[in-house]
Amino acid sequence: MTELLEVEGLTVKFESAAHHLELVRDASFEIGTGEVVAMVGESGSGKSITARAILGLLRRNHRMTVEGNARLAGRELLALAEAEMREVRGRRVSMIFQDPVGALDPVVSIGAQVLEAVRRRRSGTRPEQRRRVIELLASVGITDPELRAKQFPHEVSGGMCQRALIAIALAGSPELLIADEPTTALDVTVQAQVLDLLKRLRDERQMSVLLITHDMGVAAQTADRVLIMYAGSLVEQGPTADIFGHPCHPYTGGLISAVPRVDAPRSRRLVAIPGSVPEAADRPAGCAFHPRCPLADDRCATAMPGPRRLGNQIAACHRAEEARDSQVHRWQAGPGGGGAGRLPEERAAL
């Protein structure tokens, strides 16, 4: 598979009077042509910032700096001037967001909003462009596209709005679609439909998709490869089957076990990762995950682990081999269920 997008050492820094923050730290990954890559992380892990940095959507100034490389089919994106970047956005890379109703203009009909995106390509006559709008709406699974084109965002459901946004994103026939939590605001039954749509578009158009999500289930069911982010760093990446089959980072393992699932054996206690995600302003020294990690030792508290390759996976963990082999990620609730999943201080408090 040829690589469409290559990101190398992407670092986003934000400086203010009080803080010197690294929102994204040295992230490197690739997305192949026609590949769906899921970027998974909890809130504040830096996944949206990464996507925005690649698309040049961050306001870069003396406070916000973006370092590293992001090459789209060999062309460096981070060095482009705003005018050139605008040509890339929409035509080569498109993005859709979490809140579909908020992303559409409430006083413009859905068809007119798609037409706006079609017109930016400046090709074809007006009637041809109108036909293209209907085609696009139909291709994202909107039934009765002629009628829907005349309606306004408030008249249709959230799922329909998300489909319309996907149609807008597809207007320029992009090679890469970045979908930032596209189904988080939707109901599960509608989520399944939208995810299927993304997979179908990938197959039909050989389009690559970067799917940003907090849901390991969505990643498992949709992606070819998975990137796991924690506290601004990529902690693990690899093919979906490997990531879920034998995670090499304790955080990945913890996330997999923490997801409540409908088909798991039922027990009173869920497996929980103790503590919470640190804020960007007070990330611990060494490995950012070490205060919550069951495998952490002295080295983890002092030295930041670099990414290492283990088979098909790349993990940033000093004890990745042990994490993979010992399967400690299948954190079990301790005897009586009292101790596991709590920080020592919380345990003492009980």
């Binding site: 989520q191 299927d196 498992a220 979906t240 699932r261």
Partner: peptide, 25 residues
């Protein structure tokens, strides 16, 4: 049944059981 099968399992080896709903509420 549809609600159960729509919930994505965090496991790529279990494909969804295929009861899919059309449309929305």
């Amino acid at each position: 049944k549809a609600l159960l099968s729509a919930a994505p399992a965090p496991d790529p080896t279990t494909a969804s059981k295929g009861v899919e709903l059309r449309g929305e509420v």
